[in-house]
Amino acid sequence: MTYDLLIDAGNTRIKWALAAPGAALGNWVAQGAHMHADAAEFPTALIAALGAVPAVGRVLIANVAGQPARDMLASWLAAPQLPVQQQAIEWFASVPQRAGVRNAYRNPAQLGCDRFAAAIGAHALCPGKAIVIANCGTATTIDAITADGTFLGGMILPGLGLMATSLARNTAQLPQVKPGKLPEGFADNTDDAILSGCLAAQSGAIERAFELHQAVECIISGGAAPYIAPAVPVPYRHVENIVMIGLHAALRSA
């Protein structure tokens, strides 16, 4: 019996999950996440998790963190302590069609591989539905997938943290605020006013995409999702890591 290893190297964190053969989407044997600053912990955690499985048959990696992250991951996966064959490793890329999703980007290869994976995951979770998927991380991406699985395109905007940091860095008197609960009504202090404005911008973009696409469901994912989702005025489902689920769906369809 061989297991599947899925890795999502994003702008802020490296996430991984181990799936048993035939497992339901998102049903992991083990999983973990490491900030890039603490990335040295990744191989140790992975070695510990893989020590409990007979072998890794396939590895699928989505990397949007650039060549240094790719080189680092390739080096770690070549470690003799890991039961990973190099020929089993695939670097996930955006292609015209995969796993029931057609990529309608003008240049399909230009689409970020994390967005393509998220689209595959969303379509696998909601087949036959017009969906909007909002992945709220360092950047927030909001994409539209048709009921028959066509990725139409979407929006990219600064993530919640970037919005707040931009105000703090580029204005003389505004403080750095941390993500939190949406203040009720109009904010009566500067911290809440910044947070309210940033959350309104995020939720408003999601609402706009939902209405434009005439979607029936919205999937919200990413590290900032717990803060943004309660502010979204359309029906939504919070999914922990839609990119990882998309990678899993892509492997299951192979």
Rank of each mutant, 00 (worst) to 15 (best):
A88R: 05
Q110H: 14
R115T: 10
Q87L: 08
L60G: 04
Q81H: 12
Y105C: 12
L73C: 01
D71G: 00
G51H: 02
H123G: 09
A79T: 01
P68W: 04
C113T: 15
A62P: 00
A55K: 13
W91M: 11
A119T: 13
G100R: 07
H123Q: 15
I61D: 02
H123P: 13
P80I: 06
R70Q: 15
A117M: 09
F92L: 07
Q86I: 02
A99H: 07
L46K: 04
A62T: 12
A93N: 05
G66I: 10
A48F: 00
V84D: 02
F116H: 07
R102E: 12
G121C: 10
I47K: 03
Q67W: 03
V59N: 02
R106W: 07
C113V: 13
V95N: 08
R58C: 06
V95E: 13
R98S: 13
A52K: 13
V64F: 07
A78R: 08
G112M: 08
A88S: 15
G112W: 07
L82S: 09
A118D: 05
Q110E: 15
D114M: 09
Q97D: 08
A55M: 06
G57C: 05
G57I: 08
D114I: 13
P83W: 03
A48W: 02
A79F: 00
V53L: 11
I47H: 03
L73Y: 08
P83A: 11
A78Q: 11
G66L: 03
A48V: 02
Q85E: 14
R98V: 00
A62F: 01
V64S: 10
A104Y: 05
L46V: 04
R102P: 01
I61V: 15
P80F: 03
Q97H: 12
V56Y: 01
L46I: 10
L50W: 00
Q85Y: 00
W76F: 04
G100T: 07
C113I: 04
V53C: 07
A88C: 07
L73R: 06
V59M: 01
L73Q: 00
